[in-house]
Amino acid sequence: MAEHLTETDVRSIAEYSCIGLTAEEVVAMTADLNAIIDSLAPITEYNLEGVPPTFHPIGDLANVMRDDVEVPGFTQQEALMNAPKQEDGSFLIPSILGEGGDR
């Protein structure tokens, strides 16, 4: 296995990514990353002469999002219709902080 990344490289990547690694983890991560890079070696065996690079797998795909269309929403009464508890036009839910009870 060739060494594509050094431990210094892995430390720099970890620091840039804000990942704390111990000395043992740096050694293990260096070996793992180099093994991953080596596993991609068969790709280099393909003859790609004259094949243009593809930057997006779907080619010239444009923005396919639909236009925002305003639609009517629920009324307050419809929204509260199935609420187990309600008070003054709002949902009444169990408290998760403090002394408990509904809030």
Rank of each mutant, 00 (worst) to 15 (best):
E3W: 00
H4C: 05
H4R: 05
H4Q: 00
L5W: 02
E7A: 03
V10L: 05
R11V: 03
R11K: 14
R11S: 05
S12I: 05
A14G: 02
E15V: 04
Y16I: 01
S17Y: 05
C18H: 10
C18I: 09
C18K: 12
C18Q: 14
I19P: 06
T22N: 05
T22R: 01
E24Y: 01
E24H: 06
E25A: 07
V26G: 01
V27L: 12
A28W: 01
A28H: 07
A28R: 13
M29F: 08
M29H: 03
M29L: 14
T30F: 03
T30D: 03
A31T: 11
A31F: 02
D32V: 14
L33Y: 08
N34H: 08
N34R: 04
A35V: 02
I37Q: 04
D38M: 04
D38S: 08
S39L: 11
S39M: 05
A41K: 07
P42Q: 01
P42V: 00
P42H: 04
P42N: 01
I43V: 13
T44Y: 05
N47D: 14
L48G: 02
L48E: 09
E49S: 10
G50L: 03
V51E: 06
P52Q: 05
P53H: 00
P57T: 08
P57N: 03
P57C: 13
A62T: 15
N63P: 01
V64F: 08
V64Y: 09
M65R: 12
D67W: 02
D68R: 15
V69R: 09
E70L: 12
P72S: 11
P72R: 11
G73N: 08
F74N: 14
T75H: 10
T75N: 08
T75Q: 09
Q76C: 08
Q76P: 14
Q76F: 02
Q77T: 15
Q77E: 15
A79Q: 09
L80Y: 03
M81N: 10
M81P: 04
N82T: 09
A83C: 06
A83N: 06
P84F: 00
K85H: 15
Q86H: 08
D88G: 06
G89L: 03
G89C: 04
S90W: 14
S90P: 00
S90C: 12
F91Y: 09
P94D: 09
S95A: 15
I96D: 13
G98S: 00
E99P: 03
